[in-house]
Amino acid sequence: MDMSSREIRMPLSEVVAVLQDLNEFVVSLDRLGSRQASGTADEYTVGTFIADWDVARRVARARGIISVALDAQLSDEENAEIDALCDQGRFYGTANANSSS
Results as ranks from 00 to 15, higher is better:
R9T: 05
R9V: 07
M10V: 12
M10Y: 06
P11N: 14
L12A: 15
L12Y: 14
L12C: 12
E14V: 04
E14L: 08
V15P: 02
V15M: 08
V15Q: 14
V16I: 15
V16C: 09
V16G: 05
A17C: 06
A17H: 05
A17E: 13
A17S: 12
V18E: 03
V18L: 03
Q20K: 04
Q20E: 00
D21V: 09
D21Q: 15
L22D: 03
L22C: 05
N23Q: 03
N23Y: 01
E24C: 09
E24S: 12
F25Y: 12
F25D: 08
V27S: 01
V27M: 01
S28V: 04
S28Y: 00
L29R: 02
L29C: 00
D30F: 09
R31N: 06
R31M: 02
R31Q: 02
L32H: 10
L32C: 04
S34T: 01
S34I: 02
S34C: 00
R35T: 01
R35D: 03
R35L: 04
A37N: 05
S38T: 09
S38A: 12
G39S: 14
G39Y: 08
G39F: 14
T40D: 06
A41T: 06
D42P: 00
E43P: 02
E43M: 02
E43H: 02
E43Y: 00
T45K: 06
V46W: 00
V46C: 01
V46I: 09
G47H: 05
T48G: 03
F49V: 01
I50N: 02
I50E: 10
A51L: 13
D52T: 07
R57Q: 07
R57P: 01
A60F: 08
A60T: 11
R61E: 09
A62N: 15
A62D: 15
R63L: 07
R63I: 13
G64H: 14
G64D: 10
G64Q: 11
G64P: 10
G64F: 06
I65S: 07
I65M: 07
I65V: 15
I66A: 15
S67E: 10
S67R: 15
S67K: 13
S67I: 06
V68K: 15
A69G: 10
D71N: 13
D71F: 11
D71E: 14
D71K: 14
D71A: 14
A72Y: 00
A72S: 10
Q73H: 12
L74Q: 00
L74A: 00
D76R: 11
D76L: 04
D76A: 11
E77T: 05
E77G: 01
E78A: 04
E78G: 00
N79H: 07
A80L: 02
I82M: 06
I82Q: 03
D83S: 06
D83K: 12
D83F: 05
D83T: 13
A84D: 05
A84E: 09
A84T: 11
A84S: 13
L85E: 14
L85I: 11
D87P: 04
Q88C: 08
Q88T: 10
Q88W: 09
Q88P: 07
G89D: 10
G89E: 12
G89K: 13
G89Q: 08
R90V: 11
